[in-house]
Computed example of a mutant assay.
Amino acid sequence: MNKHATTSAKSPVWVPILGLSIFAIASGYFMSVLPLTLASHQIPETAAGWLASIYYFGLLAGAMFIEPVINKTGHRMAFIGFIALLALSVSFMAITSTLSLWMASRFVAGFAVAGIFVVIESWLLIGDSKEERAKNLGLYMTSLYGGTTVGQFGISVIGTSGALPFIVTVALLAIAIIPALTAKQSNPAHEEHVSLSVKQILALSKPALIGCLVSGVVMGSIYGLLPLALKATTSNLEQVGSLMAATVLGGMSIQPVLSKLSCRMPKSLLLALMSLLGVFAMGLLHIDNSYGVQIMALALLGMSAFALYPIAITLACDGLASASIVSATQVMLFSYSVGSAFGPIAANYIMQTETGLTGFFFAVLTATAIYMLMASLRTKPTAIAQ
């Protein structure tokens, strides 16, 4: 058992939410601009898939080591440390154009972002009330996707070449630290973190684990390869930024609906419905690839892709005590990271074929919908032994 306890009269929710929002703007912009800035640094565009995958391998590595850091330092200091590490990795990329060094930097960045996600998710999900968890998770997803949406517009406003994208990203990350630096009593009011045993991990919801895995596959491919796929259809960078923004905005817009639906239907069935929404979106793109249809279809894809992770993580935390939340979120992030690491590699290969990225998303989401429909028919709610 690992424990870290602090006491505080209150745990201000605005501290992690504000820090997350600014981080999301920086991350949303940088994740989308990175594939587009390769040419200006004399790095082949074929490296985009590998840069995305190495980032998610870092996320995968980080997901295995975050819990001890939170146990030792607490949520506030862990958040500050991981943001600082991410800023350092971006700064290093600004001063070199060597692909191997960029890949090393993206691995470090993935490790840091794993820490940020586990810190924020567990910070907001601590609390035994399901209603409180749902409310805080809604704030989390809205802030994350809202910030990411704003970040997409940086592609046209800030640009994609030279050192400026790196400088702006580092500046935003520095600002993201300020709320946690100034609110020294902002740790959760009572923290006691208990590591789940192997038996308890295996007893976690299988649809939740698969949902996080598929979310990683799709999200990793969206951030790592979708900007390049869109660039191939239009030379207008403003349109690429708008289409990416439509994807993320779609993901943000579905969040209030998810919190209501998750209380009224089995979460595995909801995962199936969200997967089918993505299948429908890819079908639209296959029929008509005009700009207007692209905006609509990518907004629907965003609703589908960005819905999978929050539904899956709440499904995993159902029946868990607050003390086990950090460990559970770490396990879910690990599953997400496995998908994120290998998804862009497979998607990059399929992008070179006639099927394209659209066909890849169609196949992955169709298989997920079938699995979740079967799971919703046979799965019974179970509580994890404490």
Rank of each mutant, 00 (worst) to 15 (best):
P165N: 03
L124D: 00
M103R: 04
L51W: 06
T73P: 01
G138D: 08
F82C: 02
A134Y: 04
L101H: 12
F65Q: 12
A94L: 08
S143W: 06
V157A: 13
I80Y: 09
I155Y: 05
S100C: 06
F107T: 04
M93G: 04
V168F: 09
F107R: 04
N136R: 11
Y56C: 05
L125R: 08
G154W: 02
L124Q: 03
Y145E: 04
L99F: 14
L60R: 01
M64H: 10
V113E: 04
F107N: 05
Y56V: 03
F82G: 03
I167E: 10
L86F: 15
A52K: 05
Y145L: 14
S105V: 08
L173H: 05
L60M: 12
F57R: 03
G162V: 01
I177E: 04
W50N: 13
P68W: 06
K130G: 09
V108G: 00
A112Q: 09
F153P: 02
T98L: 15
K130W: 09
F57K: 06
V113A: 02
S89T: 08
E67Q: 14
V150N: 09
A163M: 15
T73M: 14
L181V: 05
S53H: 00
F82T: 10
V90T: 06
I167R: 12
T98E: 15
Q152F: 03
T142A: 12
A94P: 11
M93F: 07
G138E: 10
T73Q: 13
N71A: 15
T98C: 12
A109G: 14
R76W: 07
M93D: 02
I66L: 13
S156W: 11
L101P: 09
L173P: 03
I66R: 06
T96M: 05
I95T: 14
F82I: 03
S53Q: 00
V157S: 09
I54A: 01
R76T: 10
T169V: 06
Y55A: 03
S100W: 14
G127N: 02
A52T: 11
F166H: 13
A104S: 15
I155E: 01
L60C: 02
F111S: 05
S97G: 14
S156E: 11
W123N: 02
L59G: 12
N71E: 15
V170P: 00
S105G: 14
T160Q: 10
L164S: 10
N71I: 13
T148M: 15
L137V: 10
L164M: 14
M103N: 10
Y145N: 14
A176E: 01
